[in-house]
Design a protein around this nucleic acid. Structure first.
Length: 839
RNA sequence: GGGUGCUUAGCUCAGUUGGUUAGAGCGCUUGCUUGACGUGCAAGAGGUCAUAGGUUCGAGUCCCAUAGUACCCACCA
């Protein structure tokens, strides 16, 4: 039997291990229809935060629901090697031991990364277990395991042969801390305080100068031109002439280019093709020399003359001082502008001319846009609006820089010998070939995740059975990084979308709506929540508090009130179990109106729950279930059942409803439902995980009785209202127009019922066919009179509104019939009420 | 500059294909040791659904405009 109190720690203990060891999470039953999800792989060295908790909860709800509906569910778990993130951590760790990465050497370093991976990967698995997620551990993958390495290499080679991957010297985003290239998506723009430095670029052979404004004076060593707009009248005559580059004292041309905006600043731009993406384009158009002025660690190189060896910041300071001394500085104008920073290391990104590998995006993106136009082939986003983010990215997509100057990752399968390049799945024959030192962007491998995890490029059974995936669940901030890339990779490589539905949820913020971050110290560890309130409460809250795609403001009080809800379920179950202990066979003869009422409500609930679950409307599913459990089942049916406790039929109904509730709750709160389920006197299977989801049966609807009981409940409520509002004691005598046992017992009228009217003031209560007169004399206070008047006025207004409505032929003819009928009934009720109030 | 949300009760949020006195949790008021639960029960107060138009018999819901707010993308020499 259940304890008197819900104890989440006790309930959760041991269950996950049991499910896992019994093999309930495993996929592969060929007699069933397949259903597959791949988990968004968390960084192997990371720690699950609330965002992950929400993400895996939603997936687990889907998986458990589909399992109960008879699907062969594969939920494939795994982790991401997270190239730059992991490498940064390992570098830091080695550094703390006094070891330098480069001195340590590639092989040793990689060994250190693997050690780190094995040490931390277990943490994630422990946290998954705490969350209770039904992933198939037999299928677990790692983005850097042998099979995925094979897939990555194959894709690289194929793309190269198709001309979709190329190596070229271009401006890329350089992270001087990690000393690697980054993709545009890995750059975060932040507003920082800076300045426009207005410098004098003297025009050759004159004493005139151009006022050139720059936020980055230290890059002037790489200037190979200044540009003006061809339409700018101020400078038209100067086009083709030269200016003297300050400090360097060399001549550079004045070129005409659209890039220079006459409206912006002075209309003159210095062109540094090797350190600015726009200038790079200008440089290409005008065939300008491209001079890199920095080392990979963003210190100045020999092109910076006497400033060589200084950092960017030191150089700027010293240079500005010197310019001022030489009267080459006009003024410094403070501004706030946005500057790119590395997502991982946080340092200012340096636009940097460098030789890298790229994926040519144009055609791949177009193919995705085309695929999305076809309803049968597209990825369906839920909510649908997020498809626009995908489309937008596909429209603007620039070539993707995929090489990283790191060691922890998939090594690029390219070998060089002099000017020769060889790209292949294994090293070329012959001597003198040297493999590319670089590895691939971590997102290159995760982009293949939906099929590489299933054995592709081999045509494995798993690949044939579980690809394309049915659903992918992720947050909207990852659409650019991951979702978009999975889609174009899959479209090109397999010819189809990687998944049919892409479910997008929001981010978790703190109670004030701020992002959770280390610096603010407002982060909440899901494991702490689980300790305090239990994982069932956390899961239910995360899945049902907000609509899909909306950010959630995390409120501990709500987790706490979810705990109360579970406690309520626990106690209701306790009551039912106490009453059906000796139930051995189900019996549905002689159903009372109340039995029929709850069975009907239950059927309607099943229908609507199935609809919501199928549409991934978990918040709606949650609240309907909540209302049914708390209002219909606990407040009403359980109370009714107390008057019929010995009946085997009542017991059977209690059992049926409780079982159904537990099943429908199970995807949301797996632990407590399992605990209660196993205490039921009749079991469908040894675990609730193996039971089937309730099926809607329209033959079990009893509309007439349902309406009758609805009236009874409304009548009971109206009676209590009158009693409460008027402070009528329980001893007041009551004349009832019905012998209904439920009404009498619910209102506790057994002793105060009378059979004839009394000749004193009375209160009248009426709903539907039920009517009561309560004999209790009381003088009204002014306040009460006022309240009564207000009530009367409201009623009169409502009645007249409703009369107009029902007099409107358009409404009566066009509106659904049952609605019109309901309106008529309400009107009748209101008129009765008015009569009573006017007394 | 382009885009996407949001604005509903004191707070945090729901609100299915438009259907007529708008829901929940928490908070608030009143009463209650009712034999599953005081982590509870019963009753209640509280909203001109941001503003202004339009479509419709009917708008929180659809359309247009405005304001506030948040985020994304681009630009920022």
């Amino acid at each position: 039997m259940l304890d008197t109190k819900y104890d989440h720690q006790k309930v959760e203990a041991g269950k996950y291990e049991n499910w896992k060891s019994k093999g309930y999470f495993k996929s592969g039953d060929k007699d069933k229809k397949p259903f597959s999800i791949v988990i968004p792989p968390p960084n192997v060295t990371g720690k699950l935060h609330l965002g992950h908790a929400m993400n895996v909860t939603l997936q687990d709800i889907i998986i458990r629901y589909k399992k109960m509906q008879g699907f062969d569910c594969l939920w494939l778990p795994g982790m991401d090697h997270a190239a730059i993130a992991t490498e940064a951590k390992v570098v830091k760790k080695l550094k703390s031991q006094g070891i330098d990465k480069y001195e340590y050497g590639r092989d040793n370093f990689l060994q250190a990364c693997w050690d780190w991976t094995h040490e931390y990967g277990g943490n994630i698995r422990d946290q998954w277990a705490k969350m209770g997620i039904a992933v198939d551990y037999d299928k677990e993958r790692f983005t850097l395991d042998e099979g995925l390495n094979k897939a990555v290499t194959q894709v690289f080679v194929d793309y190269y042969n198709e001309g979709l991957i190329y190596r070229g010297e271009k401006i890329i985003n350089w992270d001087p801390e990690a000393k690697t290239a980054l993709s545009n998506e890995e750059v975060i723009y932040k507003d920082v305080k800076g300045a426009f430095y207005h410098l004098k670029y003297y025009i050759e052979g004159t004493n005139d100068y151009l006022d050139v404004a720059t936020t980055r004076p230290e890059t002037l060593f790489g200037d190979t031109a200044v540009a003006v707009n061809p339409e700018d009248k101020r400078y038209k005559d100067l086009i083709g002439k030269n200016v003297i580059l300050p400090v360097v004292n060399k001549l550079i041309p004045i070129v005409a280019d659209e890039h220079a905006d006459p409206e912006f600043g002075t209309g003159v731009v210095k062109i540094t093709p090797a350190h600015d993406p726009n200038d790079y384009e200008v440089g290409k158009r005008h065939n300008l020399e491209m001079i890199v002025v920095m080392n990979p660690d963003a210190t100045m190189n020999d092109k910076a003359l006497q400033y060589e060896g200084m950092t960017r910041e030191e150089c700027r300071e010293a240079l500005v001082k010197d310019l001022e001394k030489d009267d080459l500085l006009i003024r410094i104008e403070p501004i706030t502008h946005s500057v790119g920073h590395s997502e991982r290391t946080g340092v200012m990104v340096e636009p940097y001319l460098s030789k890298q590998w790229f994926v040519k995006m144009g055609d791949l993106a177009k193919k995705v846009l085309k695929m999305q136009q076809d309803k049968t082939s597209k990825v369906n986003f839920i909510p649908a609006r997020f498809e626009k983010i995908l489309k937008h990215w596909m429209e603007i997509s620039y070539d993707w820089c995929i090489s990283r100057q790191l060691w922890w990752g998939h090594r690029i399968p390219a070998w060089y010998k002099g000017d020769e390049v060889y790209v292949g799945t294994s090293a070329p024959k012959g001597d003198g070939w040297v493999q590319d030192e670089d590895v691939l962007d971590t997102w290159f491998s995760s982009a293949l995740w939906p099929f590489s995890t299933l054995g592709w490029p081999d045509k494995t059974e798993d690949f044939k059975r579980y690809f394309p995936n049915d659903v992918l669940v992720t947050a909207y901030d990852i659409i650019f990084f991951w979702v978009a890339r999975m889609i174009f990779q899959s479209e090109h490589i397999t010819g189809v979308a990687p998944f049919k539905y892409c479910i997008i949820h929001g981010l978790i913020r703190d109670k004030e709506g701020r992002k959770m971050s280390k610096s603010l110290g407002n982060g909440i560890d899901p494991m702490d929540m689980i300790d305090e309130y239990g994982v069932d409460a956390l899961r239910y809250y995360l899945a049902t508090d907000v609509a899909l795609g909306t950010d959630l403001r995390f409120d501990v009080d709500k987790v706490s009130s979810t705990w109360n809800y579970i406690n309520k379920i626990w106690n209701a179950s306790r009551f039912v179990l106490l009453n059906i202990e000796n139930l051995s066979n189900l019996e549905f003869t002689n159903l009372t109106d109340e039995d029929k009422w709850i069975l009907t409500k239950y059927q309607k609930l099943v229908k609507s729950m199935t609809k919501h679950m199928d549409k991934y409307e978990f918040n709606l599913a949650g609240s309907e279930l909540y209302t049914f459990i708390w209002e219909d089942f606990c407040s009403n049916y359980i109370e009714f059942s107390k008057f019929n406790a010995e009946s085997n039929t009542t017991k059977s109904v209690l059992y049926t409803i409780l079982l159904g509730i537990l099943k429908m709750l199970h995807p949301f709160m797996p632990f407590v439902t399992e605990e209660i389920y196993t205490k039921m006197p009749i079991l469908e299977a040894e675990s609730i995980m193996l039971t089937t989801y309730p099926q809607y049966d329209k033959l079990l609807l009893f509309e007439e009785e349902t309406m009758k009981v609805n009236d009874k409940i409304a009548f009971i409520s109206a009676f209590r209202n009158i009693k409460n509002e008027n402070n009528i004691p329980s001893s007041a005598q009551v004349l009832l127009n019905t012998d209904d046992d439920i009404i009498i017992k619910m209102l506790k009228l057994q002793d105060s019922r009378i059979s004839k009217p009394l000749d004193i003031n009375s209160y009248n209560v009426k709903y539907g066919s039920y009517e009561a007169t309560i004999y209790y004399e009381k003088v009204m206070t002014e306040e009460e009179k006022e309240a009564l008047n207000k009530q009367i006025l409201n009623l009169e207004a409502s009645i007249s509104r409703r009369k107009n409505l029902l007099a409107n032929e358009n409404y009566v003819n066009k509106a659904p019939k049952d609605l019109v009928a309901k309106e008529r009934a309400t009107l009748a009720y209101e008129e009765e009420q008015l009569k009573i109030l006017k007394g």
